[in-house]
Simulated assay, not measured.
Amino acid sequence: MPQYSRWQVLAVWAAAALPMALMAWVVVPLCATPEEGNVAWVKWLIGGLTLGLVWQGLLVAALVWAERGNLRWRTLKDALWLHAPTHPRTGRRGGLLWLVCLPLMAGLWLSGALPEPDHSPWRDFGVFLQSDAGRAFFAGNWIWYGVVAVMLVFNTVLGEELLFRGLLLPRMNHAFGRVDWLVNGVLFALYHLHTPWVIPAAVLDAFWFAGPSKYYRSAWIGIVVHSTASVAILVLLWPVVWAQRG
């Protein structure tokens, strides 16, 4: 596996983090005027962050192409650790090893329950979904449900996880040695400049995503565990969208 220098790791981190922060703190405030109301603000925020996450997927594809010369599935599997988890001592692959995801999911949900610093509720998608305005906006709104689905797919499958656990983590060992997984987790937490209130709890993601992905040499571990939150959002949002406006 080709290795990145520390500066290359930071460059990829910046290429992922800075566009998201720019969208959240510069572009959205410029586009969503106070006269349009808070729903317009949330629409611009969802749309902007979705574009930022799609950009991450394209960035991964471009870097793999530059490194390997093609984007065939076999190439992607090797370049991005998209293999079933493999036990480092026995070499056994898949099967019951997938069960390691269960305690990791529990840890993720427990860390998500930690208190967060104060922040605007209109920047918090979860708070918006639980509000009357959020339920009214999504009632019968299949178009925006689709936009949210795209955002979540790129959030936990084709964007964040593919970039941090598929692209960066396998290429960080030369620069950071045995703590490469911990550095990966810290960088992932600091990447959340667009939602800085989650950074303290997100540091623990090193133990739910990065550490297990490194141990089993599989980005699928992080993808599966991280995606439980996306699936939960889509499931909980479904009955709201299904309901028709009164």
Rank of each mutant, 00 (worst) to 15 (best):
G94Y: 12
L63R: 02
D132C: 07
P34D: 08
P85L: 09
G37Y: 08
L51K: 04
R72S: 13
K43Q: 15
V64A: 00
V39G: 12
G47L: 08
P115M: 04
G126S: 04
V54A: 02
A133W: 04
L76V: 08
M20N: 14
P19K: 04
V150N: 03
G48A: 12
S131D: 05
W98Y: 14
L51E: 09
W65Q: 14
M23T: 08
W65A: 03
I46T: 11
L22Y: 11
A11V: 03
F138A: 03
W55D: 03
E36T: 11
W109M: 11
V9N: 05
D132V: 13
V27A: 13
P121C: 01
G47D: 04
R72Y: 06
L104Y: 09
V147M: 06
S111I: 15
W142G: 07
V12C: 02
L102N: 07
M23S: 14
T33K: 15
F128M: 10
Q56D: 14
T50H: 02
V54L: 12
L58Q: 10
L51R: 05
L80V: 03
P121M: 00
R135E: 15
R74P: 01
L58N: 06
R92W: 14
R72M: 08
G91D: 03
V64L: 03
P34G: 10
L110G: 03
M105C: 14
S131K: 10
A84L: 11
W122Y: 14
G91W: 06
L22W: 14
G48I: 06
A32C: 00
A15P: 00
R123E: 05
E67F: 00
N70F: 04
G134E: 06
V147I: 13
L129S: 07
G107Y: 03
E116A: 13
P117N: 06
V148H: 03
N141I: 04
V127R: 15
C31N: 15
M105S: 05
R135Y: 03
M23G: 08
V153C: 10
W81N: 13
G95R: 09
G37C: 05
T50I: 10
G69L: 07
L152V: 05
H119P: 07
W44Q: 06
A40K: 07
P29A: 02
M20S: 14
A149F: 15
A17D: 04
V27R: 10
P103V: 01
A133M: 12
V153P: 01
V100R: 08
L18R: 06
A133Y: 15
P34L: 00
L18M: 07
G95V: 00
G95I: 02
P34Y: 10
R68I: 05
L110S: 10
L97D: 07
L51Q: 09
P115F: 07
T75P: 01
R89N: 12
L96I: 14
G94D: 06
L110I: 13
W73M: 02
L114W: 14
V150A: 05
R74C: 02
A136H: 11
A40Q: 06
G52S: 10
L58M: 11
W65I: 00
V54N: 01
G112W: 14
E116P: 04
C101N: 15
P29I: 02
W41I: 08
K43G: 00
P85H: 12
V28W: 04
V54F: 02
F125D: 13
S120F: 11
I46W: 14
R135D: 00
L97Q: 05
E35T: 15
L10Y: 07
